[in-house]
Write a protein that binds this DNA or RNA. Structure first.
Lengths: 229, 229
DNA sequence: GCCACTTGTAATCGATGATTACAAGCTGTG
DNA sequence: CACAGCTTGTAATCATCGATTACAAGTGGC
């Protein structure tokens, strides 16, 4: 026989699958958990305490799910995987997610810190691989904030924000910015094109690429006006 | 003498300055508005209807505030100004903001669409200036999602996310990504450095810049690989 | 067996959202 | 002016909910 506390938590989670947390009555919880009303208050103090406990359990599941994601040798890709699993969790448990990330009043689940800490570790792996352009703490806050925003909008306004384009777009924007490697790639890519155009033209091994040379000229002319050599 | 409906709305807004929407009782509203209880239900159907109406008024204020921001000749900068004024509004009216952007249950304020539409116009100004790299709708959704996320985290977890660094970081990441011009700038900047190093070396007018030449080599070698050595 | 602890039962309180029935006041029209 | 129609105000009432009390029933360890 499971303990009363466990049954209450379980019953609340189950009811949370169908309704919003505030729409769930303590009596419904007690009925489903087969306990008397005072049990809730003996175990959790009040309803808020119960909901906070449920939110913390939600964070445990949330984090356990994320820890299952295998760590590859590309920490930036791992960051994106974590983002996607975050979104998937939110869409799969809308009411629980809202309870976790937009707590009402004073009921702040303490486990947000753990989520932040886990994300920080993932970010630090990027730093250790030389692929971070920001303070790890700032990077973690930025990613988590944007991630929650995408989820909340999708949950609150599914008709306007329930698409599948926004999440990857914001994800790549924020992660790309803090890690900076996508930008680095395009710098190298751009430099490649320009330098190839220049070298090819100078050595006569390639037909002059007019557009690339124009861009190169635009880059060169301001700082190096055509003066003497 | 103001109309009963207006007084109810005003009273609710005032109470919303101090408490969460759900913590406000209809009786408190009626007391402050000097109306009887049935008036709420005659005017708004139920409490949700009243809160939705208040949320819509909140959006009107929100949009009016944004429309006050002068349009400069730099639409990207205007986008950032809009972001900042969004954050300022959220921090100034926390409970109203939550009511507007994280509605409970079925009470979805219709005015989100207007906010989205206003943002879309700002984004389209960027497109018309040739400074947009994404579909305007996607850009709008991305910016608004991230913006709301930053605000919600700052409101829900002020001790963890109440800093002043996260907002600009996410702002510049998302806006920079969809407009792409920051990246364009650094491309030109990088190309400038590399090309100057190359030209300077070739013409002997500058002392070889080792680091820049290394990066140039890195950029050139992959597409033209001299095989393994 | 006894004691401490957990769990269960029943009843109750105050507050809240929601509703009813009805009276009062103003408004425009004939 | 009087009447009809609408808006607003008053009072009482319901059902529900969160919260609490007092007390009984089990359950395991000493």
């Amino acid at each position: 026989m499971s303990t009363a506390r466990a049954r209450i938590l379980e019953a609340t989670e189950e009811l949370l699958a169908g309704k919003d947390a505030l729409a769930i009555s303590t009596r419904a919880i007690c009925d489903r958990a087969k306990v008397g009303m005072p049990e809730i208050y003996r175990q959790f103090g009040d309803k808020q305490g119960l909901l906070t406990a449920v939110a913390d359990i939600g964070f445990e599941r949330f984090l356990a799910e994320k820890r299952k994601n295998p760590l590859t040798d590309d920490p930036v890709a791992d960051l994106k995987t974590a983002w996607d699993s975050h979104v998937a969790f939110a869409l799969r448990n809308p009411h629980l997610y809202r309870l976790m990330f937009t707590p009402t009043g004073d009921a702040k689940p303490g486990a947000v810190k753990e989520a932040q800490a886990l994300l920080l570790k993932a970010v630090e792996r990027c730093r250790d691989a030389g692929r971070l352009r920001t303070a790890p703490e700032l990077a973690g806050r930025s990613i988590l904030s944007a991630n929650v925003g995408v989820c909340m909008m999708a949950l609150s306004f599914p008709d306007l924000f329930g698409d599948s384009d926004t999440s990857p777009a914001v994800r790549d924007a924020v992660i790309g910015k803090v890690t900076g490697d996508e930008r680095e790639d395009s710098r190298i890519g751009t430099a490649t094109v320009l330098a190839q155009a220049l070298v090819g033209t100078l050595t006569g091994t390639a037909t002059p690429n007019g557009a690339a040379l124009d861009r190169l000229a635009a880059a060169l002319l301001p700082p190096v006006p055509p003066s003497e050599a």
